[in-house]
Write a protein that binds this DNA or RNA. Sequence first.
DNA 1: TAAACCCTACGTATCTGCAG
DNA 2: CTGCAGATACGTAGGGTTTA
Length: 467
Amino acid sequence: METLRNNKISETKEQIIQQLFIYRSLNIYQLYFFLNRLEIPSTYPHYSLDQLNRDKIRSLYNQLSQLKKSELVIESSKQPPKQYTLSEEGLSVAFQMNNIPEVEGYRRTGWNAEYGYFPYDLYRPVKERLQKHHQHAIDFNVMLQLICIKYDLEYDYIDNRYSSVEYNNEEKGKKIFRPDGEFIVKVKNSNEKFHFWLELDMGTEKSHLLFDKFEKYKQYLNYVSEGVSHTELKGSIPKSILFVTTSQKHIWARWQNVFRNYMNSIDKWGTYLNLYVCNMEMIEHLILAHIQSAKETNTKLNNNLRPLIQDKSFIGQPKPSNAVRQNTVIASFCNLYEEEEEALQWKPMFTLTQLSNKENQVFLYIKFDRYETNGISKVIDFFGKMKSIPSMKQVNAKDLIPVFYYADEKPKSLIFEGCDQIEKFKSIFKYYLWHNYDTNEWFDMNDHEIDSKIINPLNYFKGNNHR
DNA sequence: TAAACCCTACGTATCTGCAG
DNA sequence: CTGCAGATACGTAGGGTTTA
């Protein structure tokens, strides 16, 4: 600190240096937002310049030009806005400010503002080619800042320098697992959290690169999970990937491409790892939906289902498992027995509809909130194992009918073009329903709305509609 | 003749110097 | 840190010129 004072580095300049240290390279607006978090426009990433405090930006420019003069900061990038990055000397000052010894091997996790030593090579201005990618990553951080302020959440993150891990692959030897970052968004004073890996997508990656990317996730998970159960894994390792694209319009097209490569590569990890495809505009909804407690969602679902189950024409009210019976909430759902859930590694919720010949249709309730893979993987998983699960045998399970529930916009119909197992998938998803649990609307797979006052959706596939 | 290309002027965004 | 004045750079609209 002494030396800093002698060099006459004001507090504002220290803050600027700190932000550049954390984020490596920033433009004027990003710097402005990080230094004035409360002034991030609530419409971000859409905003106009007159929503910003011009004087503060003006002042930032001055500070930066002074820092440039004292050779602590350098600027780069041809197109405005310019990129500001620490010089080697500036980095050295940042290390001093953070009490980081400048020795190779002083590694830290990067969580909780515990930064370690990296050589200047990992702090220099990013190459022109990667500029857009880097900017996208920073913008994502600004977005999260805003969301956390708006909803009083906490978040912590490590960037790709810290999140890269070397691992051993049985066949191919040493490999590096390199996500674009790892994030934890937390509800204050609660255990609810959203822990995910970040993948930024410039929309330019070809199919086989996407495949390779997800294949590495599989390999890495295989590597770290040896002898560890899914439940144990969940404590330490993200169970989601947030795949953020730059494009605003072509999400659907991108989703299909990403989805099929994911399904072709991820293998058994599909039921563990949930891949969300979204753009900047969707992040807020996605995080809120994820963080909203499962209890709340279940209550709504239960309320919607109760009249359907009490309907006289509906046969086959399920008997809830022990776990549910002990619960104070009146549940409309069946669950598997605990040991069955254990074997499956996840916890299906379902209802049963009895057919005339005493066979049962299994309606499996699955969250599917716009472009996520987990639900689909779970249905496929359940379909494959259903016949061998004792309690499913017991109830004489015949058809599996997924009910995809969502809160926001109804996802488009499922398409499996380009998936290796397209025929299998199509046969699994021959029948399914959509259910908006907020508005209590039901749709069949051809997007026809089902008026639940007239037709009980749970009987929808019993009669003429069925085969 | 239409499409492709180029030039220019102008408005706006970005940035700087300097005074207070 | 703020305010003012002005420079620079970029995107774009519009008109003219070249090309197929």
